[in-house]
Design a protein around this nucleic acid. Structure first.
Lengths: 344, 344
DNA sequence: TTGTATAATGAAAGCGCTTTCAGAATCAGT
DNA sequence: ACTGATTCTGAAAGCGCTTTCATTATACAA
C-alpha cells in the first residue's frame, strides 16, 4: 500500500542516544529515568512525531489497555449513547475501546470469532437485551469462553446467575412504574407494544406490565399486548393492529411503547385513526432520545441514562469488578400522557 | 487480569505435527499445502478453537487488513449510518474497521495521535463536513501526514485540490435543488437554518441557496438565514429567532433545515407560533432518518444514501483509488412541504 | 534409470515493543 | 577510602505471527 516508514522506538533511541529500553521507560512514564535522558528522549519523540505501535505494544505487553464492546445496530441512537458513554469512560481511564458491531439483535450472527481474534483485549462489555432461549447455550458458552481470557460485563440483562457481572435494566420494575403512572392518570385500558415473545427474562417488561395490571385490578387483554421490533414501523403496525381489530369503545387509552422510535410509530397510527394525542390516547416511550422533547406532543419517555450505563460497564470491566448492578432510570414526564379521556 | 492462555500458532503446529510456517499458510489460505496436512492443521485449529492474534498479525504482516474511520458524534444517526455502511463493506472485503470517534464536530479535539498510534491501518476514511479556515492548516497537515502512511479518503467535503480523494456532498447543488423545489411550490420567502458561518466550502449549502434565490429573482433576506448546530434545539432556537424578530406578514413560508433533527426543532417552533404544517409553513430536512416518515407531517427530506457513501469510501481506501466523487442524493417528498399558502 | 522442473515444507529472521536481569554509576555511611 | 544500598541503564529474550530462502519430496520427461 504505502511505503513510508513510521519512526520506531529504535529511531528514537538512536536520536536520543539511549537504549530502546530507556525509551520504552519514558514512554510508559516510569520514574526511574534520569531527568536529562528523559528530556532527550522526549525531544526525540517530538521531533519525529513518534507514536508507539499499538500492535507491537499489545503483542509485547502484559497489559494492553484495550477493552471491547459488542453492540447491535449502532444506528439506533440508544446504542450509540451506550457506546459514547463507554468510550468516554475508557478514554478517561486511559484505555482504548474497540467496537464490535452485531448485525442483528437476534443472535443469529453472534460471531465470537471477532472478539476472540482480538487477543489483546483486557475485557469486553457485551450488550444483551435478554437471553433468547433458543440461543441460550450458545451465548452462554461464548461468554464463558470469553471470560477465560478477559474480564467481561454484560449490560442489558442479568446474567449473574451464570456468573457474569454487569448492569441490567429492570424492565419489569420500569413497566410496573409506568403502569402505575398511567393508572394514576385514570387509564384502565393500557397497551404494551414491542418486545419479543420469546423473552423470558424475569425482569422483562411484560412481568411488570402484568403485575401493574393485577395491582390495579385491571384485566389482561390479550389484544393489548403486541410484540414487535424496535422501529417506528413496528409501532405503527402494532398500534394499527390493535386499533383495527377492536371497535373504538375498546380501544386502549394508553400505550406503552418499547422505545421512543416505536412510540413515534404509535403517533402515526393514532393520527391515522383520528386519535388526538394525548387527549384520546396517551403514549409513553423509552430511551429519551434527543428528539423526544420535540415531538408533538413532546414524548414522555424514560431516561435509561445510557451513557452512564456504558461508562459504568467499562469501569467494571477494567477494574475487574464482579457484581451485578441495576441500572437507574427516570420517567421524564412531558406532554404525551394525559388523564384518561373517559374520566377526564 | 486473566491468566488463561490462548492457543498459539505453535500449539497448532505441534498438534498437527507441522511447522508454524505451514500453519500460517493454511491460515492465509495459501494453496501450496498438501491436502493431508491442511486437514490436520484445520482439525487442530478447530480442536483448540484457535484464532490468530490480530496484534501479532499486524506486527508481522505487510498487509493488516484493517482500515479506520474517523467520525464525529456517533449518536447522530447520520454518522452511525455512515459507519454502518463502511463496516459492511469492510467486512465484505475481508477487512476490519476500527472507529475513531471525535468528540466534537468543531475541530478542537482533532487528535491525530489516535489514528497514528494505530500503526497498522492500511487506510483511513475521515469525515469532514468542511474545512474550517481556522484549523485548515492543522487539518491539512494531519491529513497529509496520514497519507504518508496509508491510503486516505475524506468524505463530506471536496479536498481533491489538496490531493485527497474521497466523496463529497455537493451541498450547493442540493440546496439549489431544494430551493427550486420550494419555488416551484410557490414559496418566495425561504429560510435556511443551520450550518456554520465559517464554512467557506464552495459546495456549501449557502452557495446553492443564494443561487436558487437569484435564479428565482428572489431577494436575499438576511434574517432568513440563521446559523446553528445540528440538533433539534438549534432548529427550535433558529426558527424561533426568525419568527420572533419579524412581524407575521414577513414570516418565511418555507424553511430548509440543515438536517432532520433541526427540522424537528422547527416543527416545535412553528407549533409554538401557531403555525400549522405544512399549511402555513413548509419544512424540508436532510438525512432522511428512520423517523422522518413518522413525523407529523411526514418530513420531506433528502436521502444522502449515507450507507452507500460509507461503503464506497472504504472501498476507495482499500483499493487505493484516488478520484473524487460526488455523492448522489434524492429528495424524498413526503408531507411537510406544501404549496405556498399566500398563493394556494 | 537419470535429470530437471515443480511443489511442499521448515528454519530462521524479523515486525516494534515490554520486561527481566545483571552490570554500571551514584550515593550514603563509617 | 571502602562497603553496601540505591538508582540508572542497556543487552537480550521474548510476544505470536508472516515471509523469505534453502531444502526436501514429487513429478514428469527424456
Amino acid at each position: 500500500m504505502k511505503r513510508a516508514r513510521h519512526a520506531t522506538i529504535y529511531d528514537i533511541a538512536a536520536e536520543a542516544g539511549v537504549s530502546i529500553a530507556t525509551v520504552s521507560r519514558v514512554l510508559r512514564g516510569e520514574p526511574s529515568v534520569a531527568p536529562a535522558k528523559r528530556e532527550r528522549v522526549e525531544n526525540a519523540i517530538r521531533l519525529h512525531n513518534y507514536r508507539p505501535s499499538s500492535a507491537a505494544r499489545k503483542l509485547a505487553g502484559t497489559v494492553t489497555k484495550t477493552v471491547g464492546i459488542v453492540l447491535p445496530r449502532l444506528f439506533n441512537p440508544y446504542y450509540a449513547m451506550l457506546f459514547t458513554g463507554a468510550q468516554e469512560k475508557a478514554r478517561e481511564m486511559g484505555y482504548a475501546l474497540s467496537l464490535f458491531p452485531w448485525s442483528s439483535l437476534d443472535m443469529e450472527s453472534f460471531d465470537p470469532a471477532l472478539l476472540l481474534a482480538e487477543r489483546c483485549l483486557e475485557g469486553a462489555v457485551v450488550y444483551l437485551e435478554y437471553l433468547p432461549p433458543a440461543d441460550k447455550d450458545r451465548i452462554l458458552h461464548f461468554l464463558k469462553r470469553l471470560k477465560e481470557f478477559m474480564n467481561v460485563a454484560v449490560i442489558g440483562c442479568d446474567l449473574s446467575e451464570y456468573g457474569f457481572p454487569g448492569i441490567f435494566i429492570n424492565n419489569a420494575a420500569l413497566a410496573l412504574k409506568i403502569v402505575r403512572y398511567l393508572v394514576s392518570l385514570g387509564h384502565e385500558r393500557i397497551a404494551l407494544i414491542g418486545g419479543s415473545e420469546e423473552d423470558t427474562d424475569p425482569f422483562r417488561r411484560d412481568a411488570g406490565y402484568l403485575e401493574g395490571l393485577r395491582e390495579a385490578q385491571l384485566p389482561f387483554t390479550e389484544s393489548y399486548r403486541v410484540w414487535g421490533g424496535d422501529t417506528p414501523e413496528s409501532g405503527l403496525l402494532g398500534l394499527n393492529g390493535i386499533l383495527d381489530g377492536l371497535k373504538p369503545s375498546f380501544w386502549p387509552t394508553a400505550v406503552i411503547a418499547l422505545n421512543d422510535l416505536v412510540a413515534l410509530g404509535c403517533f402515526s397510527a393514532a393520527a391515522a385513526h383520528g386519535l388526538s394525542l394525548p387527549g384520546d390516547l396517551s403514549v409513553i416511550g423509552c430511551d429519551n432520545l434527543v428528539s423526544a422533547p420535540y415531538l408533538a406532543p413532546p414524548l414522555t419517555s424514560v431516561d435509561l441514562h445510557q451513557r452512564r450505563i456504558g461508562a459504568r460497564a467499562v469501569e467494571m470491566v477494567i477494574s475487574g469488578e464482579s457484581g451485578i448492578e441495576e441500572a437507574e432510570w427516570d420517567i421524564v414526564v412531558r406532554g404525551s400522557c394525559a388523564p384518561c379521556p373517559s374520566r377526564g
